[in-house]
Amino acid sequence: MSNIFSRLIQTSRRRSPWVYRINAGSCNGCDIEVAPCFSPRYDGEQIGAVLQGSPKHTDILLISGPITLRTQEMVKDVYQQIPSPKAVIALGSCPASGNVFHGSPTIVGSAEAVIPVDLYVPGCPPRPQAILEAIQKASVMLEKGETRSQREVSHE
């Protein structure tokens, strides 16, 4: 019985990824590309993705921007507020490496240094379809328990 329930919960993790997006000093390019994901053309709702307003309702965190010194505490805060299991998707080059801002004294430069990142979507900015694909991939990771939040808990 409990097996059926855990199977059901795993499936529902794949079927209903709720998304929260945080701008950590981005130029807004990636954020503009997130908006079409939920527009009539690409419609994230067909895979169950909904843009949520509160990090507490979220499964997948979309992070854009090179993590400036001012935002790094907030990014950490938002990540901790998301109830596990959770996945983090780094949008574009900025959270991966700092992009053109690399070496600037006002940025951390890598989301990896602040929170564990599960997926990197290359592009500057990535296309909406790439973002949707990443959301799908992340929800499959959530189902299989492959996200870093799930793996690190199970190691303890």
């Binding site: 991966a96 490496s97 890598s110 990896e112 990142v117 599960d118 997926l119 990197y120 979507v121 290359p122 592009g123 990535p126 296309r127 379809q129 790439a130 694909e133 990443a134 991939k137 990771m141």
Partner: peptide
């Protein structure tokens, strides 16, 4: 085509 979505920084 877009560059592939990867799960590790080193794969980029």
């Amino acid at each position: 085509n877009s560059a592939p979505i990867v799960s590790m920084r080193s794969l980029e």
